[in-house]
Simulated scan of single mutants.
Amino acid sequence: MSAISLQDLTVTFADGTKGLHDINLEIAPHEFIALVGPSGSGKTTLLRTIAGFLHPSQGKVEVGGKDLTGVSPESRGMGMVFQQHAVWPHMSVADNVGYPLKFTKDSAQLRKIKIQRTLELVGLDGFGKRKPASLSGGQRQRVALARAIIADPTVLLLDEALSALDEPLRDSLRRELVALTKREGLTTVHVTHDRNEALAIADRIVVLQEGRIAQVSTPEQLLVRPDTAEVAAFISDATIIPAQLTAAGAHADALGTTWPAHLIEQASKSVAHSNAVKLAVLPADTQLVSPGTDGAISATIESVLFERDRFSITAKAGAYTFRTTSTQRPNIGDQVGIIPQRMLSYPD
């Protein structure tokens, strides 16, 4: 079984900077995990530590119950695909894909069979004799994926593996990748800077911030109830507003507004030791109304983008920018009202 267990994992670089702080994470066999977080949050550092390219200063990496902390990358039984295709231009597609088999005891005939099967798996049947220069970017990335899985790895690691591709090719390969990993029973860890991609393809998402795990949740749970205000802002573009809890609800001095208690939900497991809180307003819980509507915050439309069947809108109220969507298109500069339908409360 290809379960991954990360225990008290800490990575300290030569200059004393900590890339990871006490990471504890259990990944189930065949699970598809996405690592997301702001730039510098530790996503790639964590992936490279699992792969063995970086050595932890503390903690260990176990796969299938075996401690691999001191094992070299090539001996870990993992496949890895990077952002750039990393295929050898002087070699044919078949030779690129079959390269890892040179280090096995397989016969030439068995290697040929495995190469053919793997090319079929990634949709490159009939491409074996071609050179990478004759392929599209998506096809070259399929070659890299085939090379990563041909030796039957227990774990597949993806480092921004789709980010260099254009849509809709990226969406197509994303779908194929998820189907392939499920069909082949691979445990997959995928680093991506694309929040929507993580939400679309992962069984669970690990949100990293400053080298620490901020939250591990299913996509659905992450969207509805982020553990911290920072996660809400990163994942959902939530508006974060400092406020004071009162008997009536929550009051924000900066906006001169008090929201009734029935709108406030305590989202954090932490217990506040004061009435100071951070309120997170998710775009899905933000309603645009006519200016002057009772209880609405006065705001000005700042941007309007069309997204397939609706408009993505940002509106500025004082120092705060709210995001929401609408089937009606407002004009930039329009005066509107904003009424939160729900507010998540976190200790400040």
Rank of each mutant, 00 (worst) to 15 (best):
M1A: 11
D8R: 15
D8A: 15
D8T: 07
L9P: 00
T10I: 01
V11L: 13
T12M: 09
K18M: 08
H21D: 06
I23R: 08
L25K: 11
E26N: 11
I27L: 15
I27Q: 12
E31M: 04
F32A: 02
L35V: 00
V36K: 00
T44Y: 04
T44F: 14
R48I: 11
G52H: 05
F53W: 02
L54T: 02
H55T: 14
S57K: 05
S57T: 14
Q58Y: 01
K60C: 15
V63A: 10
L68Y: 12
T69I: 03
V71E: 07
V71L: 09
S72A: 15
S72F: 12
P73R: 09
E74G: 08
M78P: 01
M78S: 05
V87I: 05
W88V: 14
M91C: 10
V93H: 03
A94P: 02
A94W: 03
Y99Q: 02
L101D: 06
F103L: 14
K105N: 08
R111L: 10
I113Q: 14
L119V: 05
L119I: 13
V122K: 04
G126T: 12
G128Q: 15
K131F: 14
G137A: 01
I150W: 07
D152T: 04
L156W: 06
L156A: 07
L157D: 10
A161L: 07
L162K: 08
A164D: 08
R170P: 01
L173S: 06
L177R: 11
T181W: 01
E184M: 14
G185D: 10
T187I: 06
H190Q: 02
N196W: 05
I201H: 05
A202S: 15
V207M: 03
G211M: 05
G211D: 04
Q215E: 13
S217E: 13
T218N: 10
P226F: 09
A229E: 02
A233Q: 07
S236Y: 00
T239V: 08
T239A: 15
A243C: 02
L245T: 09
A248T: 13
A250F: 11
A250L: 07
A252R: 01
W259R: 06
A261T: 05
I264C: 08
I264E: 04
A267W: 11
S270K: 03
H273M: 11
S274P: 03
V277R: 02
V277M: 14
V281W: 04
V281D: 03
Q287K: 10
Q287Y: 10
S290R: 09
S290Q: 12
S290N: 08
P291K: 03
T293L: 11
D294P: 03
A296Q: 03
I297S: 05
S298I: 13
T300A: 01
L305G: 06
L305E: 13
E307L: 11
R308C: 07
F311C: 02
S312P: 01
K316S: 10
A317D: 08
A317Y: 08
Y320C: 01
Y320F: 10
Y320I: 03
T321C: 06
R323T: 13
T324F: 12
S326M: 15
T327Y: 01
T327F: 13
N331P: 03
N331T: 11
N331H: 15
G333W: 09
Q335G: 07
V336Y: 14
V336F: 15
I339R: 04
P340V: 05
M343F: 11
P347K: 01
D348Y: 10
